[in-house]
Design a protein around this nucleic acid. Structure first.
Length: 155
DNA sequence: GGTGAGCGA
């Protein structure tokens, strides 16, 4: 029975309202308030349990989209994640790009990580490593801390 | 007004 504060406020509000309403027809205000509490509580409980989508279509089909994380260094500071993602998308299926900017200062650190399909990782690295981008030579490699251990075979 | 090696909380 974990009710949020907002729910409690709602219950109280409905209780007072119910008390006012029932005071016109009922007997004593105290009983009316008590009835209001009970009825509003039931109402809220009913509302919370009225989840139409009781059947959650849980697709536990964990698609093993073999994704690998790639380290990208020597990025130009003016490059955005969108640029990097677009660049890597030309050589494979990119799932996510994380440009690691320092959260302390907010300034960019000039490197990031690209998560893409493991099947395209090799191609992307081969095509984008030492690739001149923004007057700088990109450094593309597999991430040092692999978050997905599917490929033990490497270099 | 800054900034060039580097592997993320």
């Amino acid at each position: 029975m974990k009710l949020s504060n907002q729910t409690l406020v709602t219950i109280i509000a409905l209780a007072v309202l119910g008390a006012l309403i029932m005071s016109f027809i009922a007997i004593s205000p105290s009983i009316a308030f008590a009835l209001g509490v009970i009825l509003s509580g039931l109402a809220v409980h009913f509302m919370q349990g009225a989840s139409p989508a009781a059947v959650t279509p849980d697709d536990s089909s964990s698609t093993s989209s073999s994704s690998k994380t790639i380290y990208v260094g020597n990025l130009p500071y003016r490059a955005n994640e969108n640029d990097v993602k677009d660049l890597f998308s030309e050589h494979g299926e990119v799932f996510a790009v994380r440009l690691m900017k320092d959260k302390r200062t907010g300034k960019r650190r000039g490197f990031g990580f690209v998560v893409m399909n493991s099947a395209d990782v090799g191609t992307a690295i081969a095509n984008l490593n030492n690739k001149e981008y923004g007057q700088r030579t990109l450094k593309v490699r597999e991430a040092n801390e692999p978050k997905n251990g599917e490929d033990l075979d490497s270099e």
